[in-house]
């Protein structure tokens, strides 16, 4: 019986319109979603346990209102949930969350911890390998495929110049790319069942450990420098091709 813990994060919807006011990020919709990379990690754990038997526990560290995202994980098919409740509106960094999760995992038994490789809002991609380091687990990042083989995980990972097949022993930690699968949409039945699934609630303040602190400071947000508006050309394809090639040569000096 293989046991996966999958770490989930609630993130603002990066596709929704946003604006910056006095250095603060404001999203009118306020729409919060399950981090897409975490959804892929969960999907893969579900596929593997459906095939080989086992259990999937979804763990989410976040404020009270993030519980809906944990519910989504349960509706997708996780067997049980753990909500580590953090203070509302506080800016914690990756090391804080990794420290919190490490304190939670310290006395747990499991085969694998799986996380998204990064979160869609910050793209930092630190928490997974931080958590592995704090728990002294072997790890592999940026997985694009997972296979289970005698309680070992075969991780196909995307490297800089190709893909590598890495054998990860248990217990171990893997971080997943969204290039791995298409996460399932919870069915109505899944949503109904999720309401009966056990969720353990733990206050973040009750978890203790050396690593639970933020070491970076977010100073604020600003707009990216705007690009100069460009030109759009329509017309005969051949004429367009010659015009643009000419401009890239004469005006941009790129030939």
């Amino acid at each position: 019986m293989i046991h996966f813990y999958v770490c989930l994060k609630q993130v603002p919807d990066v596709y929704a319109p946003l604006q910056i006011k006095d250095g603060e990020l404001i999203q009118d919709s306020g729409r919060m979603v399950l981090n897409a990379y975490d959804a892929s990690a969960l999907e893969e754990a579900l596929v593997l346990t459906e095939k080989h038997g086992g259990k999937v526990t979804a763990v989410l560290a976040g404020p009270e209102k993030a519980k809906e995202t944990l519910r989504k994980g349960l509706a997708m098919g996780a067997d049980e949930g753990v909500h580590i409740v953090t203070e509302e509106g506080s800016a914690y960094d990756s090391l804080y969350y990794a420290g919190l999760l490490a304190a939670f995992f310290r006395d747990k038994e499991y085969h694998f911890i799986s996380c998204g490789k990064q979160s869609q809002d910050t793209d930092a991609g630190l928490t997974g390998s931080m958590l592995a380091q704090l728990l002294e687990l072997p790890y592999a990042t940026n997985a694009v495929g997972l296979t289970l083989e005698d309680n070992r995980l075969l991780v196909k990972r995307q490297g800089d110049h190709g893909q590598e097949m890495i054998e990860l022993p248990s217990p171990g930690l893997v971080t997943c790319s969204n290039d791995m699968n298409e996460p399932r949409i919870p069915s109505l039945k899944g949503i109904m069942q999720s309401k009966k699934k056990p969720v353990e609630t733990i206050q973040a303040s009750s978890l203790t450990g050396d690593g639970i602190r933020s070491v970076t400071t977010l100073l604020g947000y600003e707009e990216k420098p705007k690009r100069e508006p460009g030109q759009k050309f329509e017309g005969d394809p051949e004429e367009l091709a010659i015009t643009i090639a000419g401009l890239l040569d004469s005006k941009e000096n790129l030939m």
């Binding site: 960094d93 990756s94 090391l95 990794a98 793209d123 930092a124 991609g125 630190l126 928490t127 997974g128 390998s129 931080m130 958590l131 592995a132 380091q133 704090l134 790890y139 990042t141 940026n142 995307q158 490297g159 800089d160 050396d210 690593g211 070491v215 970076t216």
Partner: peptide
């Protein structure tokens, strides 16, 4: 910032108990 350094940065930061500023 490469796939290679992305793989290491978090673990290095946690191992030294110090900060990482990625990407």
């Amino acid at each position: 910032s490469t796939e290679g350094s992305k793989d290491l940065l978090g673990a290095l930061s946690a191992a030294h108990g110090s900060a990482a500023l990625p990407d």
